[in-house]
Design a protein around this nucleic acid. Structure first.
Length: 427
RNA sequence: GUGGCUGUAGCUCAAUUGGUUAGAGCACCGGACUGUGGCUCCGGGGGUUGCGGGUUCAAUUCCCGUCAGCCACCCCA
């Protein structure tokens, strides 16, 4: 058995590359519809760029090495730090808000599993320099429109939205202390995947005050019902202010035509520590796959990384889970057949003529193949047929001498005899 | 990083309680049907059974290790 690709890395044979290109072309098209401009950065970055944001513990999950100039470097695990740096360098010169997207290949040194490899392509869409909730709505609409563009519906995919400011407000309202927040966040984040008593057990550990623990339990009961949450906290101006923002967000999403894809779910937290406001995730409705997409607002990140204080928000959508989902729903389009014309001759000495005709067809921008070695006509047709070619231009010795060829459509076997010049001019 | 399951041709699989030159279909290459493909028929290439040890007269089969894949955990893109 020959050596395969490294664990978690993929070889893209033509069929798989066609799928990858299809996904990426949809990404680009949808991003373009929303007026986003494409950018890119280096796949290799100083390790420091990622340490700054996420701390030293992240290093274990990165592809890192020391280069020949003694620099500590890493293959990029995400695009946001690169984006932050690029924007920060020219922040003053750019019109705000900045609407950019990118399709980087990202790397992560972790054991692979379903929907998760060591390398993937990810659509990144970001808006920088706009604090209004309309920007949050616009961003999520892009992600949902990608789902629509690949043929998925609001019955297939759900967007769950939350807000860390709202979650922080309700937790502090019931008495959870600031230092206890991270652990409570982590516990709440898992409620979808763990039994309720496991979550409560974690809350028990994280929160010292018994009254506050009961408050957390109450919140969990209304985590997906914004009205019930509002009723529960109607006497807290701080919470009600955040709920007003959330309602505005949901109204904007309705206005953008994607409201029926969206569910409020306060338990969506997202692992990344830098999110500061609205966060969202896209899941398949059957819960069969991992998250398709995740993102949110990270208003403090640019000042952390680039020293420029600009509000920002963005999302990432990987190709791996999306491809798995589309394959399982039979939504991957059949790959385009490559070659349009096959030039064949009924006389093996006519290879130069075949080449000449092929060249003239190619000058007309057609894709053309022919047998590179002498073969019987039967063999040439057999090859053309199994290669999926649509038409054969057949050169018959006597006919070709008079400037005529036969164009055969392989699908139905029909043939028509035409003057070569006229045929080429008709293309 | 931890645990479970799996590993025979490019793919899907087979090989009686461990038994002699490890088979088939599909795919690929070629031939026939006397120079127009798809159908049919015939032939061919391709495996040190993931790799390395061990038990045995004998290992694809049993045991151990290792690597890889899948699944879950951790963590998250």
């Amino acid at each position: 058995m020959s050596q395969g690709a490294l664990p978690g890395f993929r070889d893209f044979y033509p069929e798989q590359l066609a799928t990858r290109n299809y996904i990426i072309s949809v990404w680009r098209d949808v991003a373009r519809r929303y007026g986003f401009l494409e950018y890119d950065g280096p796949p290799l970055e100083p390790l420091e760029l990622y340490k700054k944001k996420s701390g030293d513990e992240i290093v274990g999950q990165l592809y890192t090495f020391t280069d020949k100039g003694e620099r500590e470097v890493a293959l990029r695990p995400e695009m946001t730090p690169t984006l932050a740096r690029m924007v920060a360098a020219k922040a003053n010169a750019m019109r705000k808000p900045i609407r950019w997207f990118s399709v980087p290949q990202l790397f992560r040194y972790e054991r692979q599993q379903k929907g998760r490899l060591r390398e993937h392509f990810q659509l990144n869409v970001d808006i920088i320099g706009e604090a209004s909730v309309a920007a949050d709505a616009e961003l999520l609409a892009v992600a949902i429109d990608v789902m629509r563009a690949v043929g998925l519906t609001s019955r297939d995919v759900r967007a769950r939205v939350s807000d860390r400011r709202l979650l922080t407000a309700v937790l502090s309202e019931v008495g959870v202390r600031k230092a206890e927040m991270p652990d409570v966040f982590a516990a709440i984040d898992k409620t979808g995947r763990e039994p309720r008593d496991v979550t409560l057990g974690k809350v028990e550990k994280a929160v010292s005050n018994a009254e506050a623990r009961r408050g957390v339990a109450r919140i969990l009961n209304v985590a997906t019902d914004l009205n019930a949450l509002a009723a529960e906290f109607r006497n807290s101006p701080k919470v009600m202010e955040e709920i007003t923002h959330m309602r505005e967000y949901l109204n904007f999403l309705d206005a953008l035509g994607v409201g029926d894809w969206v569910d409020f779910d306060l338990s969506i937290v997202r692992g990344l520590a830098y999110y500061t406001g609205k966060v969202f995730e896209l899941f398949d409705a059957q819960g069969e796959f991992r998250a398709i997409c995740g993102g949110g607002r990270y208003d403090d990140l640019l000042s952390t990384i680039g020293g420029v204080d600009l509000p920002a928000l963005g999302f990432g959508m990987g190709d791996v889970v999306l491809t798995e989902l589309l394959r399982s729903r039979n939504l991957l389009p059949a790959p385009e057949l490559g070659t349009e014309y096959w030039v064949a001759a009924d006389d093996e000495s006519m290879l130069p003529d075949v080449m000449t005709v092929a060249g003239r067809l190619r000058a007309k921008s057609r894709s053309v193949e022919y047998a590179l070695k002498s073969q019987t006509l039967a063999r040439q047709l057999k090859t053309a047929s199994s290669a999926g070619v649509r038409n054969v231009v057949l050169l018959r010795r006597d006919d070709y001498a008079n400037g005529h060829v036969t164009v055969k459509t392989l699908a139905d076997g029909s043939e028509r005899r035409v003057a070569l010049d006229a045929f080429l001019n008709s293309l």
